[in-house]
Computed example of a mutant assay.
Amino acid sequence: MEELYDIRDRRFTALILMNVGMETLWTGARWAEGPAYHAAGRYLVFSDIPNDRLLRWDESDGRVSTFQQPAGFQNGHTIDRQGRLVCCEHLARCVSRVEHDGRRVVLASHYQGKRLNSPNDVVVKSDGSVWFSDPSYGIDTDYEGDKADSEIGASNVYRIDPDGTVDLVIGDLGQPNGLAFSPDESVLYVADSGQTHDPSRARAIHAYPVDGKGVGRGVMFCESDCGFFDGFRLDRAGNLWTSAGDGVHCFASDGTLLGKILTGEGVANVCFGGPKRNRLFICATTSLRSIYLNTQGVSYYG
């Protein structure tokens, strides 16, 4: 039997359940991404980007069904504080939201009159602002969207205010990818997978102090020793659980690698869910996995 955990620090043993295994809930994706858990409905939505579909896993019976297809090559998702699904769309090059009555509302598609690249991941702050990353992956090829030139000419992180204003908040990363706030929202963590386009870039997650509507100077929080960091989420204690090339890596708030959950295939994104938010859902390359942990995810996003 293959090892499930790679323990690097004794603190990791307090966060995992040694008698609990990892479950494969579904398989059949080309590139599984963007999980978001809807607590009221007890279901999880996730993307299969190259197949242009959004899938739905039902917690009550374990079934997976097609939630939307075509789906605009959606990537990352989150659930806002009103229980609405916020989506990053590659094809339309926008961030959108699904209202309670099913209407699709575009929150942002341009910055200073130019089309966004391909919004990748998204999180909602407690003040109602929506923060998202905008790398070029959805316009680099026709595999995950429509190949096109970048109108902005850079890959950035933006904030959408409740009044609809779009502001650039981070512009010093190569390809900003996954992002999430610390539990108290004093820090914004952002993954940079820019080494895909620039070999000099570190495969890292950066930490930015949040300063009102913007951020201060960022510092490197951690580096990957296997593949690229993509999407990630934090638990209530401030530990960061991130996707990587060999599974899920867990970092303490001081940047120490505590341990890994080994999946046997690359992981793109994760989220916490379940009634107690102690179940980690894992979008691996071809599959949706889950594992129960001895910690709880931050409750304000899916």
Rank of each mutant, 00 (worst) to 15 (best):
L4C: 07
R8S: 10
R8M: 08
R11H: 11
R11W: 09
M22Q: 08
A29D: 12
R30Q: 11
W31L: 13
P35Y: 05
A36P: 03
Y37H: 07
Y37M: 03
H38V: 11
H38S: 10
A39V: 05
A40G: 05
G41L: 11
P50R: 12
N51Q: 14
L55G: 00
R56T: 02
R56W: 06
D58G: 00
E59W: 15
D61F: 06
D61K: 04
R63W: 04
G72F: 02
F73P: 02
T78K: 06
D80F: 03
D80A: 04
R81E: 15
Q82R: 13
Q82K: 14
G83I: 11
E89P: 03
R93T: 02
V95C: 09
E99L: 15
V105E: 14
S109P: 02
S109L: 04
S129F: 09
Y137S: 02
Y137E: 02
D140P: 07
T141W: 13
G145C: 10
Y158N: 08
T165G: 13
V166M: 10
D167M: 13
D172T: 05
L173A: 09
G174Q: 11
N177L: 11
F181L: 08
S182N: 08
P183I: 13
P183C: 12
Y189H: 10
Y189G: 02
G194T: 06
Q195G: 10
Q195H: 15
D198S: 13
R201I: 15
V210G: 07
G212R: 09
K213N: 07
G214W: 02
M220H: 07
F221W: 12
E223L: 08
G231S: 12
R233A: 15
R233E: 14
R236P: 01
T242E: 10
D246T: 13
D246R: 15
D246S: 15
C250Y: 01
F251Q: 04
A252D: 08
D254L: 11
G255M: 12
T256K: 10
T256Y: 03
G259H: 03
I261M: 13
L262P: 01
G264C: 09
G264V: 07
N269R: 07
N269W: 06
F272P: 00
C283L: 03
C283M: 07
S287A: 14
S290N: 05
I291W: 01
L293Y: 12
N294G: 06
Y300I: 06
Y301G: 05
G302K: 03
